[in-house]
Design a protein around this nucleic acid. Structure first.
Lengths: 117, 117
DNA sequence: GGATAATGATACGGGTCCGTAACGATCGGG
DNA sequence: CCCGATCGTTACGGACCCGTATCATTATCC
């Protein structure tokens, strides 16, 4: 059964969550960083720079820089792949999992507040 | 009747929409810019720099710069308030309305794809 | 009218990100 | 082995954004 949501509800939900993200701003991630973070935490490993670049439709340096920032924030980690030392495996962290969970709560909470019309 | 959405659904929805936003990137707005844009298009006018700064919990220069960028993109316009010429009224544009509508469609489309579990 | 307050814009130094191009490291096939 | 291909990273010049402090303009109030 699909999730039913009307355009006006979608916009109000989008606005409320973004308002919270801006106000809390413990993170203040860009759209690209958010897409990377959620991909790593929702899709099955392993995740590589090249794979993420293909999924997002951006160049590899973009991924490298985003990983620098997300790593600095402690939201994920990089590890060399010992099987093929050219590859780098992106791994999840506890802090990252908490941040993702917090985002999920934020969305579901505001969804509840959004009335019918 | 509230909008029912589970955390796992929320995350998948959030990821899919962000992936689309990154891939299309006709805009590539930051979280702050998105919050401003949606506030202007969802809340009743008039909108001022000071009012937006208060709602977002940020300083006025942040709003001014965001309005510069959003104005350059044609998503909204500034106009001096003739009643009180200190104020600047932020106005909607056709392009902005289309962008907001497109975002709404993006969210509702992906919501449909998101299954029950 | 002059002092005061309020509004939005600007200056500044610092940081981050962009896209293109090049780079070092590593693997694999002949 | 060695040469080409494939990783991820870094260099570069340019653009954008940040927060603080300051500015010019306009309104208000005595």
């Amino acid at each position: 059964m699909p999730l039913e949501i009307r355009p006006s509800q979608a916009l109000r939900l989008w606005r409320q969550v973004h308002l919270d993200l801006v106000r809390d701003d413990e993170a203040d991630l860009s759209a690209r960083q958010t897409a990377i973070l959620l991909t790593v935490y929702l899709e099955l490993p392993p995740h590589t720079v090249r794979g993420l670049a293909q999924q997002l439709g951006v160049t590899k340096p973009v991924i490298t820089r985003a990983l620098d920032t997300l790593g600095k924030l402690g939201l994920l980690t990089r590890k060399r792949d010992e099987a093929d030392r050219r590859n780098v495996v992106i791994q999840r962290t506890v802090a990252g999992a908490l941040a993702v969970e917090r985002l999920a709560d934020l969305v579901t909470e505001h969804a509840k507040e959004i009335g019918g019309s």
